[in-house]
Design a protein around this nucleic acid. Structure first.
Lengths: 350, 350
DNA sequence: TCTTTCTACGAAACCGGTTTCGTAAATAAA
DNA sequence: TTTATTTACGAAACCGGTTTCGTAGAAAGA
């Protein structure tokens, strides 16, 4: 239990704690001979400096907070890897906090972060978050924040997003091209940028094709899978039911499949489906799922890079847009089995 | 940037820092009137105590470390939720660290944890870990550890596991029952308990049915998906190729599907497949995937509960076994479309 | 030789809480 | 009324590092 402290090293070597500290930090004030002795003993005793003591004195934690709705989502798990890779390289630890799509949890986490626990925060807001007051409050306390993917318009923080509107438009156009007459849109809270932007891309594509966007074809889902399933089934039981679905978040795809299954609707014959998703196994679903695939790892890495600059006091671009790609597979019908991949339309500014 | 410290509160209220601290911690030494004043001001200024200062003085961090191979795995993401739920309730923060199945990363993380960063560790070891020396080293430094799912025999820490051998045996028997003549087993490193135990369950089931377990039908995979895919294809290209596959970890399922697809082998007609997995969308794969499903959330919660007891200095049971269930679906052929679910054979000792 | 400049180290303050201990004033017991 | 006890608070030590500042002795310059 008794940790090996710097004091123990000092006693052992008959040196002062300040000398040990300086030696460990390779200060020029310490002779090479002494440094060697200190380093050797530290290695032998497997000494690890207490991070809390360092944080306290240095007034920085070398921790970054990652605040996301959940981890069981391939976009977020890939983004985490991107973030962690950059953070680790720069000597930062990542603290992952999950909101479970609950704004109350999100607020509590950001409140906690006012304590100085982290030097900066990367976040993707929850589906129940109405505005960015809690994020601004954190920023007012001097904690830099970078938003990625799910951003909010009223937060003056740098943002890393994909070309949501364009991608949703492309997805919608693919469905229309493949014969859909009535395309529905499944999103989350319209307060979320990804919902709003993807919705507007969907609407533009409809208008462009001479269709009128209809409110009844737009469904706002939430974190309750069961309720979402019921809503989707209600949508698909309508007499004038949609024959195409653009789903804006990954977790909705299985629900659409399940709903179709339970209602004996065939994909893609009766309903064509495309979903924003990074699922590796999209191609092995029944039928294989067409997706809008985001560069999740790169977005995480980019966001982490921005945050690190920000924490160093540098100025950074306020919006980075990276392109997503569409992978057409079985669920959108069309040209057959081969995936017709469109390349990311890279409108990025990095 | 300037955090609100306890000193600021003291100055504002013309009290000493010790009085503020005691008031905030509801000490009996402080009058109700003073407590009220302090609490009010703290609330008004949105004061949050610096966790590092508290940790330093109290010599405990109220953090628990979660060390797992990856997060893009439904077992682990569910387990995290179970852990976090319990931890949060007990006032602990969770620090998630990913090893990416790399023993070097795992060692580095545990080394870091010797610093006092966490009060206890929950872990599921990486696929490249050969032994538990690094875990024992951490424990020798007084940090309690609880292993879950992927455990090692040579670590004297409490373990939370499923009935791996029994479940793998059941999975194998299901394949045999459905007509397989030659069942292969895909695992990770045989050093891992889950690989070894599941393998032995598979072998027992084979012997029980009068088959001889063959080394050529056992494949040890690793973290390299491409290499794994090649190995699986090699297995399935053999003249006497297996007609059944038991896959011991979730990430192998898509690879088996892909290999069959590329080799034009039909599931379940040519090859029947069952996999240890918690994937929600297993039922929507092409064909739907039969699974051995573990109670991931409960395992995480149970492990966290044990760790918390351990950190409180209590003694706990050294091994908790919880049952897994088999969900038979399309990939194992057999009785048709309806999933034939076996209930978890609960041999748990909790 | 005497002064100046390094070199190499130690003492002590500091980060922001927590806790022990001491104490003045108020209250209770003798 | 005197003594004992309780109440309510402040001073200071402490956690384990980091950093500033001071200085003895050696080396270099005058």
């Amino acid at each position: 239990m008794q940790q090996i402290t710097i004091k123990a090293l000092a006693r052992e070597l008959q040196l002062s704690v300040s000398t040990i500290s300086k030696a460990l930090r390779d200060s020029h004030e310490i002779s090479e001979a002494t440094k060697r002795r200190v380093l050797q003993l530290a290695a032998r005793l497997d000494y690890k400096p207490n991070p809390y003591a360092s944080s306290l004195r240095g007034r920085k934690s070398r921790n970054i907070g990652i605040v996301i709705p959940e981890v069981a989502d391939s976009f977020f798990s890939l983004a985490i890897n991107g973030i962690a890779a950059v953070a680790k390289e720069k000597g930062y630890h990542s603290i992952i906090c999950l909101t479970h799509e609950d704004n109350k949890d999100e607020q509590a986490i950001l409140k906690d972060f006012q304590s100085g626990r982290v030097d900066g925060v990367l976040m993707s807001v929850s589906g129940t978050t109405e505005n960015g007051a809690h994020i601004r409050a954190l920023m007012d306390h001097g904690v830099p924040v970078v938003l990625f993917d799910r951003v909010l318009p009223d937060v003056p923080a740098p943002k890393v997003v994909t070309d949501d509107a364009a991608s949703a438009g492309n997805a919608t156009r693919l469905l229309l091209k493949n014969g859909c007459r009535q395309v529905a849109f499944l999103g989350l809270s319209p307060r979320l940028s990804i919902s709003a932007d993807r919705l507007s891309g969907y609407e533009s594509a409809l208008r462009e094709a001479g269709h009128r966007p209809l409110a009844k074809n737009v469904l706002c889902c939430d974190a309750d899978a069961h309720r979402n399933l019921l809503a989707i089934k209600r949508l698909l039981r309508r007499k004038d039911r949609p024959d195409g679905i653009v789903a804006a978040v990954e977790k909705l795809a299985p629900l659409v499949y399940q709903a179709c299954n339970e209602l004996s609707l065939r994909i893609p014959q009766d309903v064509k489906v495309i979903c924003f998703s990074n699922l590796e196994i999209a191609g092995m679903l029944q039928p294989s799922l067409s997706t809008v695939t985001q560069p999740a790892f790169e977005m995480g890495a980019k966001a982490a890079g921005l945050l690190i600059k920000l924490m160093a006091g540098k100025r950074v671009e306020m919006e980075v847009v990276v392109g997503s790609g569409i992978v057409g597979r079985g669920s959108t019908g069309g040209s057959g089995k081969l995936p017709n991949r469109t390349f990311p339309n890279d409108t990025g500014s990095n």
